[in-house]
Design a protein around this nucleic acid. Structure first.
Length: 284
DNA sequence: AAAATTTGACCTTG
DNA sequence: CAAGGTCAAATTTT
């Protein structure tokens, strides 16, 4: 539906992701390995980011083979415009029931999937407008729309926790923002090498994200995070601690889980890394 | 008081 | 009809 072949734009997105997130992290990782990056984030964190970058790019390229999310491809059609026209009359004619649930069907927008370990701050302001239990899913799905919808911005997103063990959230974006975006649009994590371990924690989450988190938890926990780390009980489960190991990865890539306690500084790790890094360089 | 969230009702789609 | 997406009244937060 979109101009200039849809496939290639997906590819461009994947390339962007690999370059921006994956390669940046990989670059830092290399300096860590070489011993130079002492104020950088931990190597494990960087590895996680690289793997996540791979994972997300794969998600993009072969649109989600795995799961319950309906196809995120950008094919679909804007069907039955009758809804728009007859909306008014249809809604008020029936019984006494007010016009609840009279809404326009979602437009044909391209979608974009993303996985992350915590709800990410994508630089936009979102307003939660719903939450649903999803069949066969452990966690509810939350629905957000752009705060500036009154200005015509139709962007929405869905966020759902998809995994418990390595905590994983899947976010699907619908539509593009046409509102004036404040600040940088797509910065996800600032990983300036100087500011050490700016790792993701609740203190960096926006309010909506905090709200989303709280609603995924047992109700006893609700409404307790303002700017604060939620309840003390096992709260470290919700944090991304910098020394978290990343061996049970989302079923695509695994990393060196076979070595129990030995450091992962294998002898030829740098060589291995160079191979990976090479991929980034050739990718462009 | 205004803005954001919660939550069940309502609508669409398959 | 079931499942998922959206609306909006009620409620909570700012």
């Amino acid at each position: 539906m979109d101009n200039l072949g849809g496939g290639s734009s997906t590819r461009m997105k994947a390339i962007e992701d690999l370059l921006r997130e994956g390669r940046d992290s990989a670059t830092q990782l290399r300096s860590v390995i070489n011993g130079n990056g002492e104020n950088s984030p931990s190597a494990q964190k960087l590895v996680k980011e690289v793997l996540m970058s791979f994972h997300n790019s794969l998600l993009l390229l072969n649109n989600n083979p795995t799961s319950e999310f309906h196809d995120a491809s950008n094919v679909q059609l804007w069907d039955s415009p009758k809804l728009e026209d007859s909306q008014e009359s249809n809604c008020k004619n029936s019984t006494v029931k007010p016009r609840r649930g009279c809404y326009k069907r979602r437009r044909t927008e391209q979608t974009r999937e993303k996985e992350s370990e915590a709800p990410i701050d994508d630089g936009h302001q979102w307003r939660k407008y719903g939450q649903k239990e999803i069949l066969n899913a452990k966690f509810p799905r939350s629905y957000f729309r752009c705060t500036h919808r009154d200005q015509g911005c139709q962007a929405t997103k869905q966020v759902q926790r998809v995994q418990e063990d390595p905590i994983l959230y899947k976010t699907i974006y619908y539509g593009e923002h046409c509102c004036k975006n404040m600040g940088n649009p797509e910065i996800i994590l600032d990983m300036s090498p100087s500011s050490s371990s700016k790792f993701l924690s609740f203190s960096t989450l926006s309010k909506q994200e905090c709200a989303f988190l709280s609603s995924s938890f047992p109700s006893s926990v609700k409404r307790e995070c303002k700017e604060e780390i939620p309840p003390s009980t096992s709260s470290n489960d919700y944090l991304i601690s910098s020394d978290l190991t990343f061996d049970a990865s989302p079923r695509h890539l695994t990393l060196s889980s076979s070595t129990p306690h030995s450091e992962y500084k294998a002898v030829d790790f740098p060589d291995l890394f160079d191979d990976v890094f090479q991929e980034f360089l050739e990718f462009r």
